[in-house]
Structures are given as C-alpha cells and as structure tokens.
Amino acid sequence: MAIESAAEDPAASAAARVVLFDFDGVIVRGDSFTAFMRWHLRRSWWRLALCILLLPLLAPFCLVKRLRIRILGVFVRIALLGIDNERFERLLDVFVVDWVGRPRIFIRAGIRELRRHMQAGDRVIVVSGCEERLLRRIFDAIGLTGIELIGSRLREGRLGLRKDVHNVGRTKPQQLAAYGIEPPWDVAYSDSAHDIPMLKAAREAVLVNAGVETVRRVERALNVAPRRVDWF
C-alpha cells in the first residue's frame, strides 16, 4: 500500500488536519481503472472476444445491484488472465504515458484544492477505488509526488492477477483504520454516494459535481446538507 509516503515527521502528521480526497470524479474525469481495462482489452483480441461472448450471459445479472460488482469482477479477471505483477506494471507504464497526455482528463480545480491543502500543512490522503499502483503512476506523471494513497489492490493467483482489496464504500474507512487513520477526519471530498461511509465520518463533507440524486442520498445519510462545489 502506498501509505508509506506519509509525512516523515510522525508528530507533525498527527497534529495536521486530515483531508481525504476521492480520485475518480474529483481529481480525474471518469473511471481511471476502467479506462486502463478498456485500453488493455483493445490490445488483446482474445481477451476482448471472450468478454464479448460472456456479455449477453452476464449483463442481466448487472441489474441486480448486489451482484453488479461481482459481474464486473469477472471481466477484470478475464482482462488480467496470465498477467503477473511485473507485466502489469509494464502495462501501467505504457498506459499512463498515453492517458495523462489526453485533453480534459484532469479536473484542474480538484488538483488546485489538493495542492492548497498540502500547502496549508494538512495531511492529504487520496482514498480511491482505483488500483493503487495506477494511482501512484498517475500522480508521479503529473509531478504530484509524496501524496499518501490508499487504493484497491490486486494479488497474484495461479491464473493471473485477481482482486485483493476493492477499496469502495465501507471498505474505505476500514482501510484507513488499518493504517491508523481513525475518524473523525476533518474534510472529505467525493462525487459519489458510494462514499457515504467516508463522508459521514468527516467533520466537513464536500460533494464535487454531484447530481441531484447523489445530493439527496448523501443529505439523507448525513442528516445535514454537505458543502457542494462544481469543479472543472
């Protein structure tokens, strides 16, 4: 886990305000790991063909909310068949060079706010469902090094990489706690109602570019209107 990039002074880190940022939809547009998966599948015809063959069989199950993540996990497993850690990291290197150079990938206001908190001496932690090594490469590519990251993680299996930790929903506070970061945190930024567990534990919850339904769900869960921002 990339949380080892924390501030070098433990006392200073403990005294700083803790500010959490989601990644997809807050720092970048869209879903960065999904973008990597699509890029990888387009480069591997047999994996893409297998996904297309299974799509009509599995798509109806995506209508069941509790099964949706599992079905998506099947396609991730197919995309990563035969891929070990070394090859995965080589793929990330190639993907990130191409991806970060595309127009309108980054939400500039989100990056400015992240930098502002860092300059204010806050302890900034990006807590994302994106795979952790991909997160690190994206931040390194744009010159934002030394940021603490907690993301999803993959592990090697007999058939290739598979899910180890899927860092979404209730898992985010659990992963924070595993690294000694206990609630309440001072500020949490997110664009999604999936982050209600993280937002609920914040002294100040901030919704980024959130739609009406997301705002309604978060307000109901928090019993208070979160701060809302529109970032471009």
Rank of each mutant, 00 (worst) to 15 (best):
F75M: 07
F95C: 04
Y179L: 15
F88R: 00
A205P: 04
R203S: 02
K200P: 02
A109Q: 06
L67H: 00
I150Y: 12
F21T: 03
T214I: 12
V127R: 04
L67Q: 01
V76Y: 00
G73P: 15
G143H: 01
D164F: 00
A16N: 03
P197D: 03
R227P: 00
A188P: 10
L67F: 04
A16F: 01
G146E: 14
T214N: 05
R133I: 03
D31F: 10
L20C: 15
I105D: 07
D230E: 12
P226A: 02
V206T: 05
R77T: 03
P60Q: 06
P56D: 01
E182W: 13
Q174N: 06
I181T: 08
D186T: 11
A193T: 02
E8Y: 10
A210F: 06
A7K: 05
N223V: 00
S44Q: 15
R43H: 10
G121Y: 11
L199I: 01
E132F: 01
P183D: 01
E182I: 12
T34W: 08
L144S: 13
G180F: 11
R17Y: 09
D230N: 10
E131S: 02
L159K: 12
R170I: 11
L57F: 10
V127H: 08
L80N: 13
R153M: 00
P184S: 10
H166V: 06
S32M: 10
D191L: 04
I138H: 09
F33G: 03
D84C: 13
R104N: 14
V96K: 09
L20V: 12
D9F: 03
A120K: 09
V127T: 05
L55C: 11
F61A: 15
C130K: 02
D140F: 01
H166C: 07
D122I: 11
F36S: 04
L91P: 03
V215W: 01
G121I: 14
S5E: 14
L135C: 11
L50M: 10
L58A: 09
V215I: 04
